[in-house]
């Protein structure tokens, strides 16, 4: 008589479900227990029930991309690259837009739990919430985070070092011989914005330039915000000689205001933006920007999830990508 799950459970002294989880390589079984069970399985030459195994290993070749806000910066480029990589490996990408709605997100995450997709990529959202954590605890091989941090659990992640971006932009301006660099940024309690501020401060410190609070202009992330920021700057006693602007829309508004005021870029004010969108290239003069490696981000995320699905090792569980500086006309004299 062939051995059943029940028999193995009895021999190993564990619950039947534990045996099933061990055989199907599911989490929730301690390493020692797993080894013990597998030994019994080998010893008795146990052949898992084909149906049971087929169910557990059912492959859909579908990946869910779960996005909290489809309008995020550079997302179209990230997603295109992700999809291309997935397609090349024989996977289809389903885009699930949650609109920051937790109930919607839960429904999409359930696709993973119910094995209706092989894995999911979570893009953005900045902090992994409990729905994600719960899934990671149960099915940790099937999730990848992109530009999203997790507090309690370790989930394979690809992200961009925004502080490094702020640092590169500021250093570039400092290298032009500028010392009074204004930072035009979004609200300071926005995590990504605060990261860029950290990079800015680090650059000043490395170049022994004192940090001046009045050169930090915090506004809302809009064209209008950028426009008004310039006039706020003009009111301070000592005018800056350069600007680091942390966002596309801010950059448009700011450059408009500078030109309206009859000043020259980069002659009177050098400007460095953040994010390599079409906008920054068509602004006159063409904008020097910190560019995020969007394609690489999308490609790596897809590669990561496909590796996980196929039980291949990932070298760096948390992969941090560095942005790069694209030097155009707005920053160098």
């Amino acid at each position: 008589m062939p051995l059943t799950l029940k028999d193995i459970a009895k021999i190993a002294g564990v619950a039947e479900s534990t045996v099933s989880r061990a055989i199907n390589n599911k989490p929730g079984v301690g390493a020692q227990t797993r080894e013990k069970i597998m030994e019994i399985v080998r010893e008795h030459n146990y052949q898992p029930n084909q149906l049971a195994q087929g169910l557990a290993k059912r492959e859909t070749h579908l990946l869910a991309l779960i996005v909290a806000d489809l309008t995020g910066p550079g997302y179209s480029e990230i997603i295109k690259s992700m999809e291309k990589t997935a397609n090349q490996a024989g996977y289809q990408l389903i885009i699930c837009n949650t609109d920051n709605n937790l109930a919607k997100e839960k429904t999409y995450l359930n696709l993973v739990g119910q094995h209706r997709v092989d894995g999911a990529i979570i893009l953005g959202g900045t902090l992994a919430n409990n729905n994600i954590m719960k899934l990671a605890l149960n099915q940790d091989e099937l999730l990848v985070l992109v530009n999203c941090l997790a507090e309690e659990v370790l989930i394979p992640t690809v992200l961009v070092d925004n502080a490094r971006g702020g640092y590169l932009a500021t250093v570039h301006l400092l290298e032009q011989g500028l010392e009074k660099i204004a930072l035009v940024m979004g609200p300071a309690n926005d995590f990504l914005e605060s990261e860029k501020l950290n990079g800015y401060q680090q650059a000043l410190a490395d170049y022994n330039i004192p940090f001046r609070e009045q050169l930090i202009i915090k506004t809302n992330l809009s064209r209008e915000g950028g426009y008004n920021a310039f006039f706020r700057v003009m009111k301070i006693d000592e005018l800056p000689d350069g600007f680091f602007v942390t966002n596309d829309l801010l950059a448009i508004g700011l450059t408009e205001a500078i030109k309206m005021g009859g000043y020259l870029i980069p002659g009177d004010f050098a400007v460095v933006g953040y994010g390599d969108s079409i906008i920054s290239a068509v602004i006159n003069p063409a904008l020097t920007v910190v560019a995020e490696p969007l394609q690489q981000l999308g490609r790596l995320a897809a590669e990561y999830i496909i590796k996980l699905i196929n039980d291949q090792a990932i070298e760096e569980v948390i992969r941090v990508l560095e942005p790069e500086l694209i030097i155009r006309e707005s920053s160098s004299p």
């Binding site: 941090l149 997790a150 989930i155 502080a163 490094r164």
Partner: peptide, 10 residues
């Protein structure tokens, strides 16, 4: 607190 946690290298 779990055994696996993410320390961000950057």
């Amino acid at each position: 607190v779990f055994q696996n946690y993410a320390l961000y290298p950057h």
